[in-house]
Structures are given as structure tokens and as C-alpha cells.
Simulated scan of single mutants.
Amino acid sequence: MSRVAYVNGRYVPYAKAAVHVEDRGFQFADGVYEVIAVNQGRLVDSSGHLQRLERSLAELRIGMPMTRAALLVVLQETIRRNRVRNGLVYLQVTRGAARREFAFPADTAPTVVAIARAVDMGKAAANAAKGVAAITRPDIRWGRCDIKSVGLLSAALAKQAAKEAGAYEAWLVDRDGKVTEGSSSNAWIVTRDNVLVTRGLSRAILGGITRSAVLELARREGLRIEERAFTVAEALDAREAFVTSTTSFVMPIVSLDGKPIGNGGPGLLAGKLRALYEAYMTGHGAGRPEWEAPFLAPPEAQAR
């Protein structure tokens, strides 16, 4: 549990942390967020996360509340005050507090909140060792999933459905019957020909920072990769499947809608990529790694 929260320039006791009742993040989901892993007290891929934060804010026409360097100080101090060695830090920026009107208010200062907490790494490792289940749900989200918006109700409904089904994650399926991503993760399969497949970047999915890191690790291993959409049927016919995210790292999916994937156990490639990613994270903890996963914007955004 976070002991201290950062709220608009002040570090306050977690139990007393609050924002204005007319904050637009609360009333309109008018804001964005980032979740960054903490390994051995250090941020993992902070550059990519803050690049994505800047881009999400720009897409919503919300100004950066401070420089990247200042935000890093806030995040690192929040981690320090909460004595987090291994866990995560959550950063949220909204348009700020203003009289409730749909149109953007003029000259409103953004609201900035940060909290940090430890994560039970043993539980995550146990899940990865046995693999986890996923279910499918229709993708009913808005058309700008590339923006890391705080408007997460549809994702929360999918995650709740997964929980009630005894599953770890829900894979969202578009109108063409193809998997977009998980409710809080990117989705991957390994075909019977040992090709690593994950959906390509577009406005239909979030460009995951862990996704970016795993793609680079896979390339360095010489693995065959295809960034394309895949169907639920392809997933069920795959040799293995997994998800990636800041909190899941690389998590093997061993069943989908109650049907086994592959041999019904964690796949060798998922295990290898998880080990490589954990070593990559540890590199962050020991000092600056030779490379950091960047944020990759979808092609239509890059073209603007």
C-alpha cells in the first residue's frame, strides 16, 4: 500500500490525498496515465513511458504539467518515500479542475497525481510457471485506444468478466473476429511454424512499452516476427500464447475460453522471453542498460 501520494506539488499522506470534486478526470475521464515498473528501486523504461505520456497529452491537447526531468524527480521521490524496491509507480495527469462544461476550459492547470506500491514478485513468478487462462470479449472501446486514457470502464468490465470466469485476462475481439489486445495487456501467439505474432500498431491498440522491449529482445534472438492481427481460431491453433504488460512482464496464456492452447502448459518461447525480459529489467536496476524500449506511435500518428 502506498504510504505517500504526490498531488499537485505536494507529498501528502495516502489516506488524505484528494483532488477537486470538479476535476475533469473524475467527471469526464479527461486525462491520461502511465504505469512504470520499479526494479531494485529504479524506474524501468522511463524514457519510453514519458514519451508516450507526452504523446497522449498532446492528442488530448493537455499541456505537459512540467518537464520530463521534473516528472522523473517526482516519480523517483514518490518511490523513495514509499520505500518501493520492486513494484510500480502510477502517474496520472488530467486537464484539471473547472466548472463542469463539455468544452475545454481555458487556462486550467493540469492535475498531477502519483502513487507507488510494492508488488509480490513471487506471485507473478508462480503464475508464469503454471500459466494463466484468458477469455474473449467483444472490443467495445472507443476508437483511440492508442491514447492511454483514464477512460477505462470497458476494460474494467472485460477484466471483471475474466475474474468471474476464473481467468487472468480478457482478450478483446474486433468486429472482424480478430484479437486487438488484452484488457490491460498486449496479446501474442506463437504459430506452429514458430513465428511470433502480435497485432501491429494502430489506433486500435495501445503501443505497449513492454511490447516494444519484448519485440527488440526477440529480434536480438533472431526470432521470426509478424506484426499483424490474428483470429481467435489462430490463437486456439497456436503452439503457445502470452501477454505482455508493465505488471505482467511476459505471462503465458495456457487456455482461451476454456480450451487449451498448445499442450495446455506454458510454452518454451514465452518462458525464454520472460527470462530475457527479467534480465533486461535487472539491467535497469544495476545501472543504465545498453538500450531502453522506446515508445512507438502508430503509423497514422507518425505520418501527421
Rank of each mutant, 00 (worst) to 15 (best):
M1T: 12
R3P: 01
V7D: 00
R10Y: 05
V12Q: 00
P13W: 02
K16M: 07
V21R: 02
D30L: 06
G31T: 03
G31N: 07
V32A: 04
A37H: 02
N39S: 12
N39K: 15
Q40D: 12
V44L: 12
G48A: 02
G48S: 07
L53V: 02
L57N: 01
R61S: 15
R61I: 12
I62A: 06
G63E: 14
R68Q: 12
L71F: 01
Q76K: 11
I79F: 02
I79H: 01
R81L: 14
V84H: 03
V84S: 04
G87F: 00
E101I: 06
F102D: 07
F104H: 13
P105K: 09
P105E: 10
A106Q: 14
T111F: 04
T111P: 01
V113M: 07
V119L: 15
G122W: 12
A124D: 06
N127T: 05
N127F: 14
A129Y: 10
A133L: 12
A134Y: 03
A134M: 10
A134S: 15
I140W: 07
I140P: 05
R141S: 02
W142D: 14
G143M: 11
R144L: 15
C145Y: 03
K148F: 08
G151H: 13
A161H: 05
E164N: 15
G166M: 04
Y168I: 04
E169Y: 08
E169D: 10
W171G: 01
D176W: 14
G177R: 13
T180F: 02
E181I: 04
N186S: 13
R192T: 14
R192N: 09
R199F: 04
G200W: 11
S202T: 12
A204L: 14
T210W: 09
S212P: 04
V214H: 00
L217K: 04
R219E: 15
E221F: 11
L223Y: 09
I225W: 03
I225P: 00
E226S: 03
E226G: 05
E227L: 15
E227C: 13
E227V: 13
T231C: 11
A233M: 10
R239N: 09
F242K: 04
V243T: 12
T246F: 05
T246P: 07
I253V: 15
V254Q: 06
S255Q: 15
D257P: 06
P260M: 11
N263R: 14
P266S: 12
L268W: 09
A270E: 03
K272N: 12
L273E: 07
E278V: 13
A279F: 06
Y280S: 04
T282V: 10
G283T: 08
G283H: 05
G283D: 08
H284A: 08
H284Q: 06
G285C: 07
P289D: 07
W291Y: 07
P294D: 08
F295C: 05
L296I: 15
P298S: 13
A301R: 11
A301V: 15
Q302G: 04
